[in-house]
Nucleic acid binder design. Structure first.
Lengths: 194, 194
DNA sequence: GTCTATATGCCGATAGAC
DNA sequence: GTCTATCGGCATATAGAC
């Protein structure tokens, strides 16, 4: 039931925001009464905090696993592609949690933000490491600001949640295209426009 | 006073979300009582709809103006750079409106979403045109999906609102780096990783 | 154009039965 | 572990004085 509550809350937070998600609505989705929620969680904010943490933990675990199971011969480019794919795919499996975090974090009460910030930062630091590895292996252009590139990549990936429908392109294909974009861009590489 | 109400509402919608923004709070920011708001707007949803429309209209106008005042000799790359810069800079001037749209649109009531969708779509179509022009001028690689590239670029640009602080890099420099990223990526162009 | 007062209803959370 | 009943507070919106 605990997980059922979190699932219901994640979905509602995603769609209705923080204040728009009521304990009564969460309970209704679980087939119980609002008062019964307090047997599982101390407060609405505790539910939100757990939704945030659960989402980041799962995405981070999926991405790390995807990168770790690559062969030692994998290039940094291969690792980034695998990470992008795992990140996108987790939108499908933990989408309500991920989308809740992305869409609701900014309007969550400060204490809830603080509690989740550590996990968020660690996950972003992992991505920074991936890109830093690419640089050290000589796979990147000189003069590229990796912090900005990482933030740009994150924005591009996470924005997928706002437009993606399963009827279109697959996550694997999308991961391929995003990785291609972040590594090579849309321009011709013959310097015609540079 | 009408504009004052919109400014206050935009700021609150941005920080507190749709349901978390109360007419009392909007009124308090304007130094009046909640009931007085109904002299200027019929309802909370009408305020939100106007915040959405105002933001999109202003950003779109700024971007078009920036592109239009380029010399005829400007490449599509130049136009995209100017558009990215104007889009980012409008975050500074109309940031509460833009951020409200980006963060709150998904949790707004359907009728409000519908009312704003036309403007949103037209603005995105304009960007699509910019990229399409780059392709027709032969400035792009073959095989690039411009719809995906545009969505990726939008995500990257709009994500700036979540991390940007005026103390760091300037919007002009950021526009230069984003444009460089979307055209050339982070990878070496000698094909070492492709 | 702003005010006070209020109608009507939902909010998060608690008490205590079963 | 779920329930009913309820507390105190705040929500949007309206009525009508000034």
């Amino acid at each position: 039931m605990r997980q059922k509550v979190l699932d219901a809350a994640a979905r509602l937070f995603r769609d209705k925001g923080y204040a728009g998600t009521t304990m009564r609505a969460v309970a209704a989705r679980c087939g119980i009464r609002a008062a019964s929620l307090y047997h599982h969680f101390p407060s609405k904010d505790d539910i939100l905090a757990e939704v945030f943490d659960y989402g980041v933990r799962r995405v981070a675990a999926a991405v790390r696993a995807a990168v770790d199971c690559l062969p030692p011969s994998a290039s940094a480019h291969d690792k980034v592609r695998a990470a992008v794919h795992a990140h996108l795919e987790s939108f499908f499996v933990y989408g309500d949690y991920t989308a809740s975090n992305i869409r609701v974090f900014g309007q969550a009460p400060r204490p809830v933000q603080r509690k989740n910030r550590g996990l968020r930062d660690r996950y972003e630091a992992y991505w920074h490491l991936l890109l830093e590895e690419a640089r050290q292996r000589g796979e990147l252009r000189r003069g590229v600001d990796l912090s900005i590139a990482r933030l740009f990549l994150f924005g591009g990936m996470n924005h997928t949640l706002e437009w993606y429908t399963a009827s279109g392109v697959s996550f694997r294909e999308l991961a391929e295209r995003y990785t291609d974009l972040i590594f090579h861009g849309i321009g011709r590489s013959d310097g015609a426009t540079a």
